[in-house]
Amino acid sequence: MTIPVFYSISDDFTKYAAVSLNSLVKHADSEKDYTVYFLNQDLTPEHKEDLAALGNENVHVKFFHIDDELVKPIKNRKENYLRADFFTMSIFYRLFIPDLFPQYDKAIYIDSDTIVNDDISKLYATNLENNLFGACTDLSIQYVEKMVTYIRDVLALDPKKYINSGMLVLNCKAFREEHFIDHFMDLLEKYHFDCIAPDQDYLNEIGEGRILHLNPRWDAMPNENTAPISNPGLIHYNLFFKPWHFKNVQYEKYFWKSAQETKFYDELKQELDNYTDLQRQEDREKLNYMLEKEDKTFNDPHNWAQIKKQGSVTL
């Protein structure tokens, strides 16, 4: 039996994905078998080689090209912008995993801006029962008033149960049996919901009531409002405060320890050194810009909350 783990990346994210993959390999149980897939549309042959070289005899690295036709209905429109900032198709790849890989009844998905600090097979052992997926509450937004308001009043969800989609334990069998991707596409095409985190919002909405909330150590995110988790199993450098752009980021030591073991270490250190205070200020302003979207979506008569109130959408 192999433990399937999926990343979705664009070519410019390869160096960060390499650091994550290196950490996963380092913590993998030598007695178990793992297959790591990189879902992509534009990886260069050189970067494929760089990632494949990090595998070993029991961690197999493979690549899967996402066909344009598959994601054709997902348009580059403002309501599909990540963080209200830009469009990236790769955030949607994770939703297609169960249909693209029918050989798996369960799979793990993790973002590329992560560090694995424990054996990922422990996460895979999660008993999902009848839940669609397992994930962790998004603790990075619990102290951001506008995000809490957005989740409560625009999405009509409980902010304390709103999960982050950077780590998912997918019940692939249930996704297929219940035609999750067809349902997602129907909602996407019919309503054009204006979202701050498109893939994440849809997962929270469709999965409501059938999400297994996991121990927060499996999606530990840098947070300026809380103390760090002492034994994080997986660290997710969510939103803007990446350790390759900011110094003194919570959990940064785990990133640099793994980065040091890859060919990209010098390049990453240079990226940090060359990142200017002006760029950091712009990143902080992007957070504010993202939060401004809450005002607009709150007054949208076609937002999630209003459509659900009308009873015209079945999730």
Rank of each mutant, 00 (worst) to 15 (best):
L100N: 05
Y81V: 06
G55C: 12
E57T: 14
R77T: 14
L95K: 00
K106F: 06
D105Y: 08
F64Q: 11
A53P: 11
S90P: 03
F87E: 06
I97Q: 03
K48M: 07
Y81A: 07
L51C: 05
K62V: 11
D42G: 04
L95E: 01
K78L: 13
N56S: 09
R77F: 11
Q41V: 07
K106P: 03
F87M: 09
E46L: 15
N40H: 11
I74D: 08
N56Y: 08
F92H: 01
N58F: 08
P73C: 04
Y104N: 02
P102L: 09
L82I: 12
N80C: 02
I66D: 00
G55Q: 13
P102T: 09
R94F: 11
K62I: 10
E49L: 11
K72M: 13
I74Q: 06
K75A: 02
P98M: 03
Q103W: 09
Y93K: 01
V59Y: 03
N80K: 00
K62N: 13
V71R: 00
Q103Y: 08
M89K: 12
H60K: 15
L82T: 13
H47Y: 09
I66A: 00
E57G: 15
A84W: 04
D99G: 07
I66T: 01
K72S: 12
V61I: 10
I74G: 07
L39W: 03
V71F: 02
A84C: 12
E46Y: 15
P45A: 13
D67Q: 15
N80D: 00
R83M: 14
H65D: 12
E69P: 04
Y93N: 01
L39I: 04
L82S: 13
Y93R: 01
E49Q: 15
F64E: 10
F101I: 05
P45Y: 11
Q41C: 08
D85E: 12
L51Q: 02
H47I: 07
H65K: 12
K72G: 06
L43G: 05
I97C: 04
D67L: 14
P98E: 03
L51V: 05
L70D: 07
K78P: 10
F101T: 06
L82D: 14
L95Y: 04
E57H: 14
L43W: 04
A52W: 05
D42E: 04
N56C: 10
N56Q: 08
N56L: 08
I97M: 06
D105V: 10
D85A: 07
K78D: 14
K78V: 13
F87S: 09
N80H: 02
N58E: 06
N40R: 02
F63N: 00
D105K: 12
I97S: 05
